[in-house]
Design a binder for these strands. Structure first.
Lengths: 139, 139
DNA sequence: TTTCTAATTCAAAATCATTACGATTTACAT
DNA sequence: ATGTAAATCGTAATGATTTTGAATTAGAAA
């Protein structure tokens, strides 16, 4: 997802263009990694000392609601990332060292078959964690 | 995992038999569901008003460390459950309504193939959420 | 452009899960 | 029975997140 598309969605849903929102979205546009509310605040406080958690969290919620951001939960923290626009559904490897993300082409749900008859499936989570080649010590 | 085996492991690792540990383990032995620290405290406070968070959390950490319990994170809370002793690795469907759990026979890691060359894989998470047949409103 | 109004922001406090601490009690090997 | 390390208690601290209420601001309408 790029910034232009993100603002299109916001406009379409009646949200205003504010500099705080621009800063937050720019941070996501510039990285591939998952970011926490604190990551954002720490950086943005430099330029906008008044930036508060309220602003961060409310906007993150808005962005997730509008599918501009994806959210996942890792070690007790909510992590956010620009929503993937890949043609088809996929999952991620997440590097615990640098936070970088790699797409995994498969989705286990396709392989469930009739494992869950009469179950109402609402969601699923599949993530792989470890070290990417750059962070893996090959010595 | 049954209580006898759990105590075997604790003994082997030099942990003492305390009534608090017994109560906590009994709660896990009696249910199939994932429980939170609060679930445990709320119940155990009835019989042991003095029961404190310290006791709960320290013991949960110990049990997870010793593979007596499994841990997962759902909606911002850590959830615990008796460790599965099934012959082979598997994953779970978790009912968001009643908390009951159903084993899923597959593990997506087997299907990764060479998707992650030179990546150091440390962990993975695969869970399916929804409503079990009992909780699904079939009207 | 000026005005209006709802949306947004700020700053601080509340909440919730989790962790930590010093004092006391307990399990269990000797 | 006793000594000692381990475990527990009661409570306070921490850290992430959410909420609140007053002040500010963006964007639409006149």
């Amino acid at each position: 997802m790029n910034l232009t598309r993100a603002w299109e969605i916001l406009k379409d849903n009646g949200f205003k263009k504010t500099d705080k929102r621009e800063l937050i979205l720019k941070m996501f546009a510039e990285t591939d990694k998952y970011l926490t509310a604190r990551d954002l605040l720490d950086v943005l406080k430099k330029d906008y000392p008044g930036m508060s958690f309220d602003t961060i969290y409310r906007n993150l919620a808005t962005f997730v609601e509008l599918d501009i951001l994806d959210e996942t939960e890792m070690q007790g923290e909510r992590n956010f990332r620009m929503h993937c626009e890949s043609e088809h559904h996929h999952h991620h490897f997440i590097c615990r060292e640098c936070g970088n993300v790699k797409e995994l082409p498969l989705c286990p749900m396709e392989l469930l078959g009739e494992s869950l008859p009469n179950f109402e499936i609402e969601a699923h989570k599949f993530e792989v964690y470890g070290k990417c080649p750059d962070c893996s010590v090959t010595s």
